[in-house]
Design a protein around this nucleic acid. Structure first.
Lengths: 205, 205
DNA sequence: TAGATTGTTAATCGATTAACAATC
DNA sequence: TAGATTGTTAATCGATTAACAATC
């Protein structure tokens, strides 16, 4: 049996990957756990320990070949393919997410947008037509979409989630300010900007 | 000297607060660490331990008076006042953040928006006029704004951050996909949706 | 009173760091 | 070779959980 890799370790891999991409854009070809740690504000020991869960990727004396480590991390995170993403909610937030350019380079493409507002259904966000949530299950099943983003009001979020799970979605990025209940095997990450702000105001007089 | 309260504990307080607000909206007046834990997917022991850093808020046998605990958590997080927030970047994301209704109830109000694009400067997002970053320092200093959100491209984010810090900002919510360097005493929280998605795809076949 | 739940202590569990042999 | 840096082990540190006396 594979050793159980801590979830907190998995959560840092995308951060490492992001910084490696940046380093490469800056023209570097090799880096070290020390350099990476400096840039990320993480100890070099932690980086080496995290990576060692997955294999030896570096070379004593020289460090890590950036392109190679990048490629390996992408494989580990299953980013050696593009994930289609369903977006539910075509309000301000949903539309901003749909237009956001930051997903494409990082393995994700929003290909379907759903809403329940007749005024929005049929409209376009970029070149994607907003579809009715009534056809959501059918569409998601047909295409085999496994990743979704929920950008609907809190009151609708659980219901939408249930429908997504029903349709076969296994990873949900939740922007609604409530904790979603999902069955075993379905993953949820929560983005709550106000909570982050509140975390910081603790430290302000 | 006050005992050093772990940052990870502080980070959970906004989550507790959010759930308490929800419970109250649902008509409850009293809750327990068990009920709260159930709803949040956190152990009741952890909730009691976290709260005990700040004082006894409950009553044996009955639990917590929601309104009271809410009020106390707000005080602890310095949410017994409204924080003005400066937003830098009036692109799709910035505009969505400015229009987002979720900040108002939770202690924050975006009152200034800055951009460096002449095409955007002078335009309105809701009823807020987009100002030039050239007047940013002056404006932020004058009003005494301490909290900011950065929604500019990665390439500009560090420069913008330096200017914000220079102007006296002490808490920054960063939407750019880079790690920001800030001096001691300035707080940064990072929102990186792609990283969250990548975290989850690890678990998808 | 009997039942329920807190606040807190001690035990456990897990994550981070320090240190260093191996080796490029 | 000498210097640098990895991968890994053991030590440390910190966070979570279990348990229960206190008490509403």
């Amino acid at each position: 049996m594979t050793p159980e890799i801590p979830d907190i370790v998995i959560g840092r891999l995308p951060i490492y990957l992001r910084e490696l991409t940046l380093l490469r854009e800056e023209g570097y070809e090799v880096t070290s756990s020390h350099e990476l740690g400096q840039r990320l504000g993480i100890s070099s020991a932690q980086i080496r320990k995290d990576l060692s869960w997955f294999g030896p990727f570096g070379k004593q004396g020289t460090g890590y070949a950036i392109a190679y480590l990048q490629e390996q991390l992408k494989k580990i995170l299953h980013l050696d393919r593009e994930w289609q993403v369903a977006l539910v909610g075509a309000g301000d937030l949903g539309r901003a997410l749909a237009r956001y350019g930051g997903f494409a380079h990082r393995g994700f493409r929003i290909t379907r947008i759903f809403d329940n507002d007749p005024a929005k259904i049929g409209s376009y966000v970029g070149n994607i037509k907003v579809l009715s949530v009534r056809v959501m299950k059918e569409e998601i099943e047909r295409i085999g979409i496994q990743v979704a983003m929920v950008a609907v009001p809190a009151a609708a979020a659980q219901q939408v989630t249930d429908a997504l799970v029903e349709a076969g979605v296994r990873a949900i990025l939740n922007y609604a300010p409530i904790v979603l209940a999902v069955p075993e095997g379905v993953h949820v990450q929560h983005i709550d900007p106000a909570a982050h702000l509140q975390h910081m105001t603790y430290y302000l007089g």
